[in-house]
């Protein structure tokens, strides 16, 4: 119960920050609109179009989720550096209340982000089908990956460093190695090998299979993402608990 009370406070802190709306909702929608416009502007004689909405929309939903790391890590690092957290440490809140309180608000946000992105994609020509609901659910493991990274970085880095690592580095890494903007096999070599080892391209592939209704192909990719989500969540909870004790 206390975890939910703390989660409610954290939800308010995050959603009342204008950056959440800008990066969480507006930015992915702008990207969808912009890239769709670019796609429509490419003449047919230039070959196959790069950003078909069927493959672009699932990619953007995954990319949008990368900002969850920024939101959660910023809140945690900010709390850590103020006396507010001292007040909470002396309260009856337990370590599990803290962990749940910081992670729970992110899951509905992840769902909302995906739903809004797919809703926008419908206006851009994505056919409506029940597959989209499956795609929203398929995004949950990668949401846990990003939430865990936020918990992890927020526990060890200060507010300034968190902005750099989660706001710039992580979003860029997750974009380059994700198959969203270009097919990593076009680059090949070590780049492709790294992309295959990371969870981002697998998350995008799984979301694309879900949108296309090819449910049988979702799982080899989604296992990768679920594996990363489990390992990162355990690592984040461990590091957070250790830092909590040290604090």
């Amino acid at each position: 119960m206390r975890a939910l009370i703390f989660a409610s406070r954290n939800t308010k802190e995050i959603t009342r920050d204008i950056m959440t709306t800008v990066f969480g909702i507006a930015f992915p929608i702008v990207l969808l609109l912009l890239l769709s416009a670019i796609n429509n502007g490419i003449p047919k004689e230039y070959g196959p179009k790069m950003f078909n909405i069927e493959s672009l929309a699932p990619g953007i939903t995954v990319f949008g989720l990368s900002f969850l790391s920024l939101f959660s890590s910023m809140l945690i690092s900010k709390d850590r550096t103020t006396s507010f957290v001292l007040r909470l440490f002396t309260s009856p809140l337990t370590p599990s209340d803290f962990i749940l309180g910081y992670t729970l608000p992110m899951l509905p946000m992840a769902l909302l982000q995906s739903v809004v992105c797919y809703a926008c994609a419908l206006f851009l020509g994505l056919p409506f089908s029940a597959n989209l609901l499956v795609a929203v659910v398929v995004n949950l493991p990668v949401a846990v990956v990003f939430i865990s990274l936020g918990l992890l970085f927020g526990s060890v880095l200060n507010e300034k460093a968190v902005g750099g690592v989660c706001g710039a580095l992580l979003t860029n890494l997750s974009a380059w190695f994700s198959n969203i903007w270009f097919d990593t096999s076009m680059v090949g070599g070590a780049f492709k090998a790294v992309a295959d080892c990371l969870p981002f391209s697998h998350a995008v592939n799984a979301a694309r299979y879900a949108v296309s209704g090819d449910f049988g192909s979702i799982f080899p990719d989604l296992w990768w993402v679920i594996g990363y989500a489990a390992v990162l969540l355990i690592a984040a909870v461990t590091v957070f608990s250790v830092k909590l004790k040290k604090s």
């Binding site: 406070r9 802190e13 103020t82 006396s83 001292l86 007040r87 002396t90």
Partner: peptide
């Protein structure tokens, strides 16, 4: 406890 620095939730 009322900590040394102001301890309130800003938003």
């Amino acid at each position: 406890v009322s900590p040394q620095e102001t301890a309130v939730a800003a938003k």
